[in-house]
Design a protein around this nucleic acid. Structure first.
Lengths: 108, 108
DNA sequence: AAATAATATCGTAATATTGCGATATTAAAA
DNA sequence: TTTTAATATCGCAATATTACGATATTATTT
């Protein structure tokens, strides 16, 4: 196969997986970190920053946007991409909950 | 292509991406949540719990282990898999830092 | 020792991802 | 209005992931 059986999992499980998957590529992590560094941003800057061609960067940006990790605002003929804090909050909360649960249990 | 150019990114970027990628599948999220729920755990339980065949589950467990998200201790002829808190801490810290940085800047 | 149980590995088919050249699209600039 | 600049989309080749049946491995049980 190759396709994952998303129907069999809960909405939350699928949602977390989608977000995590979007972060599962070093180029996309680098994009996030660059957006943080420069605050406001246009895509052409990122193309110069990354060792990837423009269409590839554009594709990575699209995936980050689909996962809700970044927002894109059109500004003239360029686009201002920036971090969508809410999604990162969601992730942080999720991991905090996991850590809290693990800390209160002993195993292995 | 299909292979990502990991050489061009920092070690930390690659590390975060590897961990995130391992979490980028609902079955693996479900495994993590199940490990949390039952505290100690053997793999056959997970096979019963998930809508996936035993070899598939084994493969997902391997990926979680490779990414450092779970630890596996051999116990007789079964294996006790459990959460590796350290890696989740690392993730939480990483996201906390991102959120802190975003909160202190304004954009879009 | 043979049978059983739990898990891992191999091989392979189906599908997804990655990367990029070529080509659109769209808005500002000349 | 033509040119230029920024970005997106298409199409395709290379590679990776997902899933699982068949089979191997290893430890317990009988």
């Amino acid at each position: 196969m190759g396709a994952s059986k998303t129907d069999h999992f809960t909405d939350q499980q699928n949602q977390i997986a989608i977000i995590a998957k979007a972060l599962g590529h070093p180029a996309r992590i680098a994009i996030i970190e660059y957006l943080l560094k420069v605050n406001a941003c246009i895509c052409s800057d990122i193309v110069d920053e990354l060792p990837l061609a423009q269409p590839t960067v554009s594709q990575h940006l699209k995936e980050l946007k689909n996962a809700g990790l970044i927002k894109g605002n059109i500004e003239g003929n360029s686009i201002c991409y920036c971090i969508n804090e809410k999604t990162f909050d969601l992730l942080k909360e999720y991991f905090s909950k996991i850590i809290f649960t693990v800390t209160n249990q002993k195993c292995c």
